[in-house]
């Protein structure tokens, strides 16, 4: 059964239609990539899923529950985390305080400590800098913090928006390795990326968005060899 089902959603910003009726699904354990150019509607789609904006039409079903009308702050507790575009860490709070904020909806104190230990294991640099204000971290470290913070809620599904944005190629590799690790550890991943090559290399399946429509979809490896994709997104 699909973990996440998007059914025919339409999203408007005022009179401008950003999403023109798209449907797709994410199955448990998969890494799904949503690729496309600037303004294709990738971020809007993700924000609709995690309840930051509400669609005019269509529905979002998560683990069998229709969450379309559920207020955004309640969705985290249902097992869905969102790593927003541009990291959005709390820059004046320390790294540790940021991570604790990620566990805001949880009440199990000892288990939170366990999750913290696993997050530190995945991101040793966060532990080294746990008392430093998040605003003083480098871009790559902030990305790791944003991912660690999302993992603190122990999500079943983690949605990531442009995790590679503004990072050096070495850091991009590191971030994508970590995403693969997160997936191997049992968390389903929905990844929005402009870096199509990287995204397709780690994804199981992918959807290609163009001006609010899904124009292509399929197995990630197959899409990588698709002539259209090669031309438009892989720069070959």
């Amino acid at each position: 059964m699909a973990m996440l089902e998007i059914e025919n959603i339409e999203v408007f910003y005022g009179v401008i239609q950003a999403i023109k009726g798209i449907s797709f699904q994410v199955n448990e354990g998969e890494v799904i990539a949503l690729i496309g150019a600037n303004g294709a509607g990738k971020t809007t789609t993700l924000q609709t899923i995690t309840g930051m904006i509400s669609p005019k039409k269509g529905s979002v079903i998560f683990n069998g529950t229709d969450i379309t009308k559920i207020p955004g702050h309640k969705i985290v507790g249902m097992g869905m985390a969102h790593v927003p575009e541009g990291r959005r860490v709390f820059s004046q709070l320390s790294v540790l305080e940021n991570l604790k904020m990620g566990a805001y909806t949880r009440k199990d104190k000892t288990e939170i400590e366990e999750t913290l230990a696993t997050v530190y294991k995945s991101f040793p640099r966060l532990e080294e800098r746990k008392n430093q204000p998040a605003g003083t971290l480098s871009g790559g470290e902030q990305q790791m913090l944003a991912m660690g913070r999302a993992l603190m809620s122990r999500p079943k599904l983690i949605c990531m928006d442009e995790p590679s944005m503004g990072l050096s190629p070495i850091l991009v590799d590191e971030i994508f390795n970590i995403i693969t690790e997160i997936s191997k550890a049992g968390t389903t991943v929905l990844l929005v990326e402009q870096n199509a090559k990287k995204a397709l290399s780690i994804a199981d399946r992918a959807y290609v968005l163009e001006t609010g429509n899904i124009v292509l979809s399929g197995d990630a490896k197959e899409l990588m060899n698709n002539e259209q994709i090669k031309k438009a997104y892989l720069g070959e």
Partner: peptide, 24 residues
């Protein structure tokens, strides 16, 4: 307190606070 921490988070970034599960 948790409510106090929520205030800190909201004061920095409302959207990010909501993503943490905070009722803004």
């Amino acid at each position: 307190t948790k409510a106090g921490q929520a205030m800190l988070a909201v004061s920095e970034d409302k959207d990010a606070a909501q993503l943490m599960g905070i009722n803004v």
